[in-house]
């Protein structure tokens, strides 16, 4: 009898890569729902369009590379990239922004480096940064949250804006981070009172605090499902909070706002649970992830307060992606039976 000979182990845990990715996508749903509630269908449209285009690019590259297309699409990594990119882009941005972003993410940042598992940088963040520095105007126009009486466009209106390019100036508003950044040398209290978005919120601006809470919930679900370990996100949030405490000077807008403000505005929670935890481009060991996450937290605060851009998740993550191999080199765990941990190489490289 011819029996198949298969290498051990013969049993596997049921969790597969595709399933991991799908779980991640599921965990973004509360955040997406809240975003849609506050800002209208713009983000939903972004997410759908970006996912579709990303999958399309992925399939095209796979076909060009002569690999089985369906097999690779099934791992859903392109879907995750698309969803994250869509969430990060401002609602009602023109359609070509999404397409260019998807191209940058999948083709430039992922497939040019060899495809899934080989990309040194987070594809969605690469795309976001490229778009941000290339099209600063389009990328900085956030819709106003519905809470403050902002006008939330209907589906048709939204489609018209996105595909026909009609102006959206009518209902954009500065994000809380923008507001704080632009109003330097004022007392925070007066800034909060002046700005409708901040004024309407309870601790980090109308809408934004709920969006971040929703992403936090999604992240907690992923932690519960043990999709990733707590190290990177927790250390990132802790570092950010610590920085905010250290530099909080009791109320001037130069200090950049309170701890709660930093933790629950901008893309903090999205970054902490969906970007920083991207395994491909982060450090490998748990100790390494602690360092990696903490460094991102520090960088976020630094760039938010002293940099040119209001939010900083993407830049901080990309900078630490650079450093991930370096962190790995110094955080090799001690192997069983060895006195001390080996550096990644015994001999210096040539």
């Amino acid at each position: 009898m011819a029996l198949t000979r298969i290498t051990s182990p013969h049993t596997h845990r049921a969790l597969g890569t595709g399933q991991v990715m799908r779980t991640v996508v599921m965990a973004t749903l509360p955040g997406l729902a809240v975003l849609t509630y506050f800002f209208g269908v713009g983000t939903l449209h972004n997410v759908l369009l970006a996912s579709a285009v990303c999958m399309g690019f992925e399939a095209a590259v796979m076909a060009v590379r002569g690999r089985p297309v369906l097999f690779y699409l099934r791992d859903c990594s392109a879907l995750v990239t698309g969803v994250l990119l869509g969430l990060a882009l401002p609602p009602y941005c023109p359609w070509w922004l999404v397409v260019v972003g998807s191209f940058c993410a999948i083709v430039l940042a992922k497939q040019l480096y060899g495809g899934m598992g080989f990309n040194p940088f987070n594809p969605a963040m690469v795309a976001y940064v490229i778009l941000l520095i290339s099209f600063p105007l389009q990328m900085s126009q956030w819709a106003a949250p519905s809470d403050i009486g902002g006008h939330t466009p209907g589906v048709l209106e939204a489609l018209k804006q996105i595909w026909a390019g009609s102006s959206i100036d009518g209902y954009t508003a500065a994000t809380p981070l923008d507001t704080v950044k632009q109003n330097s040398s004022l007392m925070l209290d007066s800034v909060y009172l002046q700005d409708p978005v901040l004024a309407a919120g309870s601790f980090a601006g109308a809408g934004w605090e709920w969006v971040n809470l929703a992403f936090l919930a999604g992240g907690a679900y992923l932690l519960y499902r043990r999709i990733f370990t707590w190290h990177a996100p927790v250390s990132m949030l802790a570092a950010l909070a610590l920085m905010a405490i250290i530099f909080y000077d009791g109320g001037s807008s130069n200090s950049g706002g309170s701890v709660l403000f930093h933790l629950f505005s901008g893309a903090t929670m999205l970054g902490a649970f969906f970007i920083v935890t991207d395994p491909v481009s982060s450090a490998v060991s748990n100790r390494g992830r602690l360092i990696y996450g903490a460094s991102i937290g520090v960088l976020i605060y630094v760039i938010r307060i002293w940099g040119n851009y209001p939010d900083a998740i993407a830049f901080a993550v990309l900078l630490m992606n650079f450093a991930a191999p370096f962190i790995d080199y110094y955080t090799v765990p001690r192997t069983y039976g060895h006195k001390k941990s080996q550096r990644a190489t015994k001999k210096a490289d040539l």
Binding site: L108, I130, I133, S134, F135
Partner: peptide, 18 residues
């Protein structure tokens, strides 16, 4: 044309040369 700034910036040069 909205201008694809990255192409003008040094990263664009790297990508195109690549």
């Amino acid at each position: 044309y909205p201008g694809f700034l990255v192409a003008i910036l040094p990263p664009g040069a790297f990508i195109v040369t690549g």
